[in-house]
Design a protein around this nucleic acid. Structure first.
Length: 568
RNA sequence: CGGGGCGUGGCGCAGCCCGGUUAGCGCGCCUGCUUUGGGAGCAGGAAGUCGGAGGUUCAAAUCCUCUCGCCCCGACCA
């Protein structure tokens, strides 16, 4: 590709509304442009990088025995009603209507559609197992699109679905695909880690997410030296006690005018936040429940939902809270709370002389003691585990890191096959629902993750596997006939040898072109200029190491090919 | 959805409080000449419904109302 004719609109200045490194660089280097919030145009360089990643994904998925298909972006609402997700998925599901007013979903994921294919076409256990996958544009009407293509409303994803007669077969495929993921991310030179994950709205039992380590990542991962690693949504652990020995004192009522939050109450009463116990009212499948946690900690709603065995858990509305506690929002407490289950985190168990809401406006109880003053229905681990807590597996102190979730795998079981009546005839002649797995990988997000990990102060530093071009020829002065002749000759011969070459033949100052070359980040740069030609050489420079070597003009093609072999 | 902020040539911004020349600056773009090894110089030039609608006023980028879009924080989330 000749830069002089290519749409590679680089910018010298930082874009105003991009925060993360990858977002800024993708804009500055002309990889993409925003069309509207969370929706992007991929320009030639960006699209090439996407293709590079797609190719690796295809190779590894195919190697793992998966079959590529393509499902439609649009799917009828009826299919989503069958699985129940038309209601459960919420506003994130992008809904559209056709001219007759019939509803459709723009696919955020394709469990329903693929299950429909398979229930219509597959009858026998003899055809199992198999895995179908596609690489396609997905739609999720995100509450808050962010960080460019990292959290977009329209994005490119590889999604795979496996079908099995039993759990053992699912386990095997699950492992195979995790192995494929390992290979994919290794080939892309990413520093990543698979971690245990919560299953969320997709459902299923076991799930792993692949996290690319990055401080700008949106996911918090809890890790332990013993090897345990899980997303904060999923992580189990022990919240260490903070209270010393204390004798129970008499419970008293304290006026706390306008003090609702933990900070306000603890400051007003002059006690540490941990002495307070938060009482949060939730609606679990429409039924109100109270959840208790130590004042300095947060509830993990995913774990609470699991403990309650509910699908839909949301904070109760102010009306419900007032009905349950007989007080305005902010003064709920377990003392005298009637008619609701009280689920408490283990962190509450050892506390004595605590402070809780009095179920009365502008009042709290102090020196409250469990058993004497209130009863808990059950204790569970429902705390959001954080760095500094104890590992549930080995007791060591937990650590944390941030990451970008580039893929995830779920063991779905029969969640979709049951609700959508997708069955096969097993060896024993009995119709059974397919056991399913699903495996997503964010392609466009992975490109951003690569840049997030591979850049320096001058721009992108592509690993060879994802680079839009492996090599770029930079012509110092396009008006110098000799220089141009050598550059064109090398360009033609490299292309003939099957190498994708970017030829910077723009009539610009050398400085501007050097800066652009660094910004765009092509791994190998060949500079052709009169200065080198006087020595009979062109100069090869490795973007990553900044190492520069002369290579003789006569053997330039061979030398470049050789150099490319050594780069990764 | 709550809080905060921003919409002015392609990009980055100033002007707005305190209304009043022809709306300005840097980068980019076009033409010419010169220049050519880390964002070149000179000269000339093109390009802006000041996000949109309504209002106040003799007069609105500037004040008021509404509206649309975008960004950040939070809530939410495969």
């Amino acid at each position: 590709m000749r830069w002089s004719k290519a749409l590679i609109p680089t910018h010298k200045e930082e874009p105003a509304d991009a925060e993360t490194v990858s977002h800024r660089l993708m804009l500055r280097a002309g990889l993409m442009r925003k069309l509207t919030s969370g929706v992007y145009n991929y320009l030639p360089l960006g699209w090439r990088a996407i293709h590079k990643v797609e190719r690796i994904v295809r190779e590894e998925m195919d190697r793992a025995g998966c079959q590529e298909i393509l499902m439609p972006v649009v799917s009828p609402a009826e299919l989503w009603r069958e699985s129940g997700r038309w209601d459960v998925y919420g506003k994130e599901l992008w809904r559209v209507q056709d001219r007759n007013g019939r509803y459709f979903a723009l696919g955020p994921t394709h469990e329903e559609v693929v299950t429909d294919i398979v229930r219509k076409e597959v009858r026998s256990y003899r055809e199992l197992p198999f895995t179908l996958y596609q690489i396609q544009t997905k739609f999720r009407d995100e509450l808050r699109p962010r960080f460019g293509v990292v959290r977009a409303r329209e994005f490119i994803m590889k999604d795979a679905y496996s079908f099995h007669r039993d759990d053992a077969s699912l386990d095997e495929t699950y492992r195979d695909i995790c192995d494929a993921y390992d290979r994919i991310f290794n080939r892309l030179s990413l520093t990543f880690r698979p971690v245990e994950a919560a299953t969320g709205a997709i459902g299923g039992s076991v799930s792993h997410e692949y996290m690319v380590l990055s401080d700008t990542g949106e996911s918090e991962v809890i890790v332990c030296d013993c090897g345990y690693a899980a997303t904060d949504e999923r992580a189990e652990g022990v919240v260490r006690p903070v209270q010393g020995e204390e004798d129970p004192k008499d419970m008293e009522r304290a006026d706390t005018p306008d003090a609702k939050t933990i900070e306000e109450v603890s400051e007003f009463l002059g006690v540490e936040p941990w002495r307070l116990v938060k009482t949060i009212i939730y609606e679990a499948d429409g039924k109100p429940v109270a959840a208790l946690i130590r004042g300095d900690r947060e509830i993990n709603e995913a774990k609470l939902a699991l403990a309650l065995g509910t699908d839909i858990l949301e904070p109760a509305s102010p009306e419900i809270i007032e009905k349950v506690t007989a007080a305005p929002v902010g003064f709920a407490g377990p003392v005298g709370l009637k008619g609701v289950e009280i689920m408490a985190d283990h962190s509450v168990e050892p506390l004595v002389n605590i402070v809780v809401g009095a179920n009365e406006s502008d009042a709290h109880f102090v020196n409250v003691n469990r058993e004497r003053d209130f009863e808990v229905t059950a204790f569970h681990d429902i705390a959001l585990i954080a760095k500094g807590d104890e590992c549930a597996k080995c007791g060591r102190e937990l650590n944390s890191f941030r990451g970008i979730e580039v893929s995830q795998a779920f063991k779905l079981g029969t969640k979709y096959s049951s609700s959508m009546k997708a069955t096969f005839l097993d060896e024993d002649g009995v119709a059974k629902p397919f056991i399913m797995g699903c495996y997503g990988l964010g392609v466009s997000r992975t490109v951003a993750a690569v840049i997030e990990q591979h850049n320096d102060e001058d721009g992108i530093v592509w690993p060879m596997a994802a680079a839009p071009f492996p090599v770029q020829i930079l012509v110092i002065n396009v008006k110098s006939e000799e220089t141009m002749k050598v550059a064109e000759d090398l360009y033609g011969k490299l292309r003939a040898a099957g190498v994708d070459v970017l030829l910077d033949d723009r009539d610009d100052s050398p400085g501007a072109k050097f800066k652009d070359a660094d910004l765009v980040g092509v791994p190998l740069r060949i500079t052709v200029g009169e200065r080198g030609l006087k020595r009979g050489a062109v100069e090869a420079r490795v973007r990553r190491t900044k190492e520069q070597t002369d290579i003789p003009v006569e053997s330039a093609v061979e030398e470049v090919l050789k150099l490319l072999e050594t780069l990764d």
